[in-house]
Design a protein around this nucleic acid. Structure first.
Length: 559
RNA sequence: UGGGCCGUCGCCAAGUGGUAAGGCACCAGGUUUUGAUCCUGGCAUUCGUUGGUUCGAAUCCAGCCGGCCCAGCCA
């Protein structure tokens, strides 16, 4: 049976409304979309929004979506980016119908350009780039016609062919659409269609020395692929008249329409490719897949699940309104998904040794702990206990306020799954730093409850010292301290100096896979963790994906 | 200030002339061997603003205010 609640993207948006209307009028019967990245960088959370939109619509309307590389600028594009983009889209769980390059269409595009020239709707301009700019006019003043605007069709044809045949240097000529130099829309003031560029293209090699520009290429590529709805971001709104002009003046196999939506803006983050590049090149982060980066590859390494990203995209919606999403939305999407799928374990990130003086030194016990508190399907594992254990340093406080439910001198807490212990003595070194705690345990409280029914408010996690696995744990936090680092004159000043803290003395319970990053763990009371790419059995490394919600921190702050 | 687009709760977002969905956040309770999860309740007499049309307007019209985008041989 069909369960309507199983459809994730069932909330309407203006694009789906348009599609519904087009379908209703019979304008088309199959919905075809495309996700068209330029392979000049890594995909980030902003691209995820577009991917979910395009692939999501194709899926829901039983159509299909292409992954098209918009590779018309050979100077910026690289195979490395192509590989990473394919990998990221696949990882998110989407399947493309086909995966063409815009460069696959260069021959057809060239023929169409010739067609435009023949119709007298395009001409070769021999002005310099500076002259073209000077003659374009301004926002409030019209431009001036190029002195080459009235060249004959024959001359244009010959020049354009010579451009293609490598008779000229870069910048000597360009092909321009002949539209209107006085148009109030600057994109319509005879936009450049082709430029000469002696660069080796990742796909076409040295076959071409002229390359079409985005505006000429995009709509025609859509038309070749039969794309029905070409979805792009708001900054292309002004390009739509040009998109339409090109399609209206050429005979194409289909007639797509462009619809624009607002790009994602997320608090405390940057999605500008240029700035992301700076972070990588300056070594502010370890690479494109640094777990603090909101690139798809960084998020993957950090421990995000594809579903959490998809859920996030569903939560934020699609509109034309310029808006900024709070980080809390992403964090909630992440926590909600991880909560259902993470295996519970105990780990101590900042260890403080506890010696249970009345527990026999040669004794050990194994306690059974469920792998998930709400889902029995996860099963359980055995957790070793012994006389010396580690607890989290901040689970002990010498002068604790009343509301502090954890350990402090004279107070009793529950060790999860094990016993009640009471703190008897605090051992400090010469510098006054707490080195260990001497406690006693109540043998009657085995399993975590006592026959006399006395209440113990606090339950803390622990790891048996003798059985502990040493590990490094990376604690990650947001990369920027300012909600809008992109708005600062220099985003470097907004960099969070504590965005990555290395804990190199963490203690893990033994039942943890050290190198399997397909397993999401919740280290109880600490957060969600995943083993890092660099983790090995000899040198285990875990990344903190996200903390748990922490209402104690709130109480603490408000006091 | 030429053109284009946008203004509904702190942040998102439904709503398409019939009397303001939902999520996040926040607040107050309950359950809990994770101060997690989960559950319950609260949270816009009002839709940038002013005026108009209408029995009735967030929805239609006009003016005003505010914000974003465009002058690459980038995408």
């Amino acid at each position: 049976m069909h369960d309507p609640s199983a459809v994730a993207s069932d909330s309407s948006n203006f694009i789906r409304d348009t599609i519904d209307a087009d379908l209703a009028t019979g304008k088309m019967s199959t919905i075809i979309t495309r996700f068209p990245p330029e392979p000049n960088g890594y995909l980030h959370i902003g691209h995820a929004k577009s991917i979910c939109l395009n692939f999501g619509i194709a899926r829901d309307y039983k159509g299909y979506c292409n992954l098209r590389f918009d590779d018309t600028n050979p100077e910026k594009e690289e195979q490395e980016y192509i590989d990473s983009i394919r990998r990221d889209v696949e990882w998110l769980g989407f399947e493309w119908h086909s995966n063409p390059f815009a460069s696959d269409y260069f021959d057809q595009l060239y023929a169409w350009a010739v067609d435009l020239i023949t119709q007298g709707k395009a001409y070769v301009d021999s002005q310099s780039a500076e002259e073209i700019r000077a003659n374009r006019g301004t926002l409030t003043e019209p431009g001036n016609d190029s002195p080459y605007r009235e060249r004959s069709v024959e001359e244009n044809l010959e020049l354009f062919e010579d451009m293609k045949n490598d008779k000229y240097n870069d910048g000597e000529h360009v092909l321009r659409a002949r539209i209107d130099m006085a148009s109030p829309n600057i994109n319509m003031r005879d936009p450049v269609l082709y430029r000469i560029l002696h660069a080796t293209h990742h796909n076409t090699g040295d076959k071409w020395c002229i390359y079409p520009l985005y505006d000429f290429t995009h709509g025609l590529s859509d038309a070749i692929e039969g794309v029905t709805h070409s979805l792009c971001t708001l900054e292309f709104e002004d390009h739509r008249p040009l998109y339409d002009w090109i399609l209206d003046n050429l005979e194409t196999p289909s007639r797509p329409v462009q619809i624009e939506f607002a790009r994602l803006q997320l608090e405390y983050s940057l999605t500008s490719k240029r700035k992301l590049n700076m972070l990588v090149n300056e070594g502010q982060v370890s690479g494109w897949d640094d777990p603090r980066m909101l690139t798809i590859s960084g998020m993957r390494r950090r421990g995000f699940t594809p579903q959490s990203i998809i859920n996030f995209c569903d939560m934020i919606g699609i509109t034309k309104k310029y808006s900024t999403i709070e980080m809390g939305v992403l964090e909630t999407a992440l926590r909600d998904d991880l909560n259902t799928r993470a295996t519970r374990r105990m780990a101590v990130v900042d260890p403080l040794k506890v010696i249970i003086e009345n527990y026999p030194a040669d004794q050990e016990e194994w306690f059974n702990g469920p792998n998930h508190p709400q889902n029995p399907d996860f099963g359980s594992r055995e957790v070793p206990f012994s006389r010396e254990i580690y607890i989290e340093r901040d689970d002990f406080m010498e002068d604790a306020p009343k509301k502090f439910f954890r350990l402090s001198p004279g107070r009793e807490v529950r060790l999860r799954f094990a016993y009640y212990i009471t703190c008897k003595e605090v051992i400090k070194n010469a510098a006054g730093k707490i080195e260990s705690l001497i406690c006693t345990y109540d043998p009657e409280s085995r399993g975590g409850s006592s026959p006399d029914g006395r209440k113990v408010r606090g339950t803390i996690h622990w790891v048996s010292a003798r059985h502990a696995v040493d590990a490094q744990v990376n604690l990650y936090d947001r990369l920027f301290t300012s909600p809008n680092p992109g708005a600062a004159a220099d985003f470097h000043q907004a960099l969070n100096p504590d965005s990555h803290i290395v804990m190199d003395n963490a203690k893990l319970e033994p039942a943890i896979e050290l190198t399997d990053n397909s397993i999401a763990y919740q280290f109880e009371r600490l957060g969600y963790f995943i083993s890092d790419y660099d983790s090995s059995n000899d040198n285990p490394v875990f990344n903190r994906t996200m903390t748990l919600r922490d209402s104690w921190a709130k109480i603490e702050q408000s006091q």
